Simulated scan of single mutants.
Amino acid sequence: MTVLIIDQMHPSIVPLLEAEGFGVDYRPDISRGELLACIGAYDGLVIRSKTPIDREVLVGAKKLRFVARAGAGLDNIDLEFLEQNGIALYHAPEGNRDAVAEHAIGMILMLFNKLGQADFQVRNGIWDREGNRGEELSGKTVGIFGYGNMGKSFAKRLRGFDVNVLAFDKYLSGYGDEWVEEATFEQIQRDADILSIHVPLTSETRNYFTIERLERFRKPFYLVNTARGEVIGFDTLNEALSRKILKGALLDVLENERLQALSTAQKISFQQLTERKNVLFSPHVAGWTNESYLKINQVLVKKISGKWTDLG
Rank of each mutant, 00 (worst) to 15 (best):
L166A: 04
L166E: 05
L166F: 02
A167W: 02
A167R: 05
F168K: 05
F168G: 01
F168A: 01
F168H: 03
D169I: 03
D169E: 05
D169H: 04
Y171G: 08
L172K: 12
L172S: 11
G174W: 05
G174F: 06
G174I: 13
Y175P: 01
G176T: 04
G176I: 03
D177L: 06
E178S: 13
E178M: 09
W179R: 10
V180P: 02
V180C: 02
V180Q: 04
V180H: 06
E181Y: 05
E181R: 08
E182H: 03
E182N: 05
T184I: 01
T184D: 00
F185W: 05
F185H: 06
F185D: 06
F185N: 03
Q187V: 13
R190D: 02
D191Q: 11
A192T: 12
A192P: 03
D193S: 09
D193F: 13
D193I: 14
D193N: 15
I194R: 07
I194Q: 07
L195I: 08
L195M: 07
L195Q: 01
I197D: 04
I197Y: 00
I197R: 03
I197S: 06
I197V: 14
H198T: 11
H198Y: 07
P200N: 04
L201C: 11
L201A: 10
S203G: 15
E204T: 14
E204D: 13
E204Y: 11
T205Q: 07
T205E: 09
T205I: 14
T205D: 10
N207R: 14
N207K: 13
N207I: 12
Y208E: 11
Y208L: 15
Y208A: 14
F209V: 15
F209N: 08
F209A: 10
T210N: 09
I211W: 00
I211A: 03
I211M: 01
I211F: 00
E212S: 15
E212M: 13
R213S: 14
R213E: 12
E215F: 10
F217P: 06
P220I: 10
P220W: 07
F221Q: 06
F221K: 04
F221P: 01
L223W: 07
L223C: 10
V224G: 09
V224Y: 00
N225L: 10
N225M: 09
T226Q: 07
A227R: 10
G229D: 00
G229T: 00
G229F: 01
E230K: 12
V231M: 01
V231S: 00
I232F: 02
I232E: 05
G233E: 11
F234P: 04
F234L: 02
F234C: 03
F234A: 05
D235R: 15
T236H: 04
T236I: 12
T236E: 01
T236V: 12
E239L: 14
A240P: 06
L241E: 10
L241I: 14
L241S: 11
L241W: 07
S242P: 00
S242V: 12
